[in-house]
Design a protein around this nucleic acid. Structure first.
Lengths: 214, 214
DNA sequence: GTGGCACCTAAGCGCTTGCTCACCCTCCGG
DNA sequence: CCGGAGGGTGAGCAAGCGCTTAGGTGCCAC
């Protein structure tokens, strides 16, 4: 299992600076994604990074700090993806399509990272969790904004905007749980499938996606 | 935190005897749901059940056996819900509506149990995981059957049946992650919302009004 | 009354955990 | 050639883990 095994051919983590600290962080992502935070030992992380257990504590105060850094970077990236799409050009349908497509694509391509980011929230210390939860609320707001604008413009038919927003995000996030590189779908294919499904959920009138049926 | 605190006013677990074994199992569900399997100690489980740590081992060989029993019972219930709906009367749309409504309702009402059942699969021993995965495939098959029949009958418009099936199940399952009794939605409301969203995803034509199209 | 049984506990064993500490490299400016 | 700093290690500590074992207690048939 090498560093570029799954979706990690991804040049993020470039912001993590001493090289050794980055190797430890990447090792931690792999380990947390495979076994979960609590089932991962600091010895395992250090071992994957080719270091002794003690080396970890030169760069991180605790195991939880590693998780927090991963979670923070991942949530920043996820939020950036959604806000970029939300602020983009085009109709609400086009922006929602772009948002879902890129958000889902990221969750599939970097499903190891995404799994840690999305499913290990409870393992964060309370003060760190608060910070992360705030980012998640911003993600929710970005999606809700697109949907609300689509409703306002008469493009969408959505009886329950907050509920639909919740469902859309939930659907996208859960990709990180089931997606596997062993499966036969590429991240782009999943993104396209999900974008279509979400547009149906909001009752989008066919805008630029002319599916001429039968 | 009492026994009937959340969705556990649910007379399931009635199949678990003797009484002490059931108390331990209910305690384990609560603990696993709150902190996750790996972060839960056998002392915590025994303590919640009002027993000494050793008492656990009279009724269960290992901590993993507890998880397996919970997972097995929960998956049996989930599968039963889906198959009942799939085999029911009515159009495909009516059956899909019923399936999603009851499946989501169960996940919301018993979100503690559902969280353990749906998100602690990796913690199962390999032979137990195999058994559970087989049950999950049956659940997938039940939903796919309804969707495929709807497509066959011209009721639904679904370009990618396996993909849509996956997305529908994923959407429903993820309810267990975010649902909280502190939220302002009842399980029935979430079920209704989700049933509507899923019918949109499959492009269901209004069932009662058999539109003869183009 | 007594033996057998089902159930439960106090104590603790062997091991692993997150984390620390004393020490050791290698590099580099003066 | 030296001295200090940043990055690393081997050994190990205190605590907590899953699980075991020896023994106690109430109950019931006989």
């Amino acid at each position: 299992m090498d560093s570029a095994a799954d979706g990690s051919g991804y040049q993020a983590w470039s912001e993590v600076t001493p090289d050794a600290a980055r190797r430890l962080l990447v090792a931690a992502v792999e380990a947390f994604a495979e076994r979960g935070y609590h089932a991962t030992t600091t010895r395992d992380i250090a071992g994957r990074a080719g270091m002794s257990p003690a080396a970890l504590y030169i760069h991180y105060k605790t195991k939880e700090e590693l998780l927090h850094r991963i979670s923070r970077i991942g949530h920043d990236k996820a939020l950036e993806i959604l806000e970029t799409a939300a602020a983009g050009p085009g109709t609400a349908a086009e922006r929602l399509d772009a948002a879902v497509r890129s958000f889902v694509g990221w969750h599939a391509a970097h499903h190891t990272t995404a799994r840690v980011v999305q499913y290990e929230l409870d393992a964060l210390a309370p003060e760190h969790r608060g910070e992360i939860v705030a980012l998640r609320r911003e993600s929710d707001a970005a999606v809700r904004r697109i949907i609300a604008e689509g409703v306002g413009a008469g493009e969408f038919d959505v009886p329950d905007v907050p509920g639909t927003t919740l469902a859309v995000l939930s659907l996208c996030i859960d990709v990180a749980r089931w997606f596997s590189t062993a499966g036969h779908r590429t991240p782009d294919e999943v993104g396209a499938l999900y974008a279509d499904l979400v547009l149906r959920m909001v009752g989008a009138r066919p805008a630029a996606v002319p599916v001429v049926q039968k």
